[in-house]
């Protein structure tokens, strides 16, 4: 089978030292393959968000290795990780993290522009991404003028713009009502069905059930996994 898009190998993360030492992750390994959506579930404080920040290169593990699209994040260095976030990894946050001074299209075009794309090309790609999340016609609005669901759609558009292979979503539905949350998950799922790998951190079973696999995290450890790896799922589909 193919290489996973994201692979965490025995990742640990310790915050602080001495008495204030806190183990956020204790030797977690997991992989996400192209075309699958993996949900990570756990109560707050279980380490699921740490897992995601490390997967996105926003934080570095204390030990263990992280590979995104075949590249080791530690070897990539700060600028290499930034480059990965611009080109390969899309991050979706609970509170959207849109830049209020920029329009919807500009927010979406941000990774492309930061990567040095021409303004025109970036805008075109951004508008296409906005179309994809159903926000055609809102390109020139500012985030302040839009509803929470619309803002999260912009964030998703920003996470999928260009050819992203990995989407990391950290409680993307946290600030939204059930229906809007379902819409957001549908968009992420669609992206995964189109070939991206997705990792979704949530504490809501309803949204986790969109995933192909659900990984349970407790106290910085993976305790269980529900669902089949892509191979099994594929085999089933072939049989059916």
């Amino acid at each position: 089978m193919s290489e996973p898009v994201l692979r965490l190998t025995d990742v640990s993360r310790v915050h602080g030292t001495g008495a204030a030492e806190v183990h956020a992750l204790r030797g977690v390994s997991l992989a996400a393959y192209a075309g699958e959506l993996v949900a990570i579930m756990g109560p707050s404080g279980s380490g699921k968000s740490s897992l995601l920040t490390i997967a996105g290169g926003l934080d570095s593990p204390t030990s263990g290795s992280v590979e995104v699209a075949g590249q080791d994040l530690d070897e990539a260095g700060i600028s290499g990780r930034a480059k990965l976030r611009r080109t390969s990894v899309g991050y979706v946050f609970q509170d959207f993290n849109l830049i209020p001074a920029l329009t919807a299209a500009e927010n979406v075009a941000l990774p492309l522009e930061l990567d040095g794309a021409g303004r025109r090309a970036a805008q075109k790609a951004a508008r296409a991404a906005l179309d994809e999340v159903g926000l055609d016609g809102f390109a020139d609005r500012f985030p302040d003028e839009m509803s929470g669901g619309q803002r999260q759609r912009i964030a998703i558009a920003r996470a999928i713009v260009g050819d992203r292979r990995l989407i990391l979503a950290d409680e993307p539905t946290g600030a939204l009502d059930t229906e809007t949350g379902e819409d957001i998950l549908r968009l992420i799922r669609a992206r995964c069905d189109a070939g991206a790998a997705g990792v979704l951190v949530t504490h809501e079973p309803r949204y986790a059930s969109w995933a192909d696999r659900v990984i349970y995290v407790r106290d910085g450890l993976v305790v269980d996994e529900a669902g089949e790896t892509p191979d099994a799922a594929l085999a089933e589909e072939v049989e059916a």
Binding site: S50, D59, G174
Partner: peptide, 8 residues
């Protein structure tokens, strides 16, 4: 107790 690095 695990207050943890998570902000939320």
């Amino acid at each position: 107790v695990q207050p943890e690095g998570e902000s939320r």
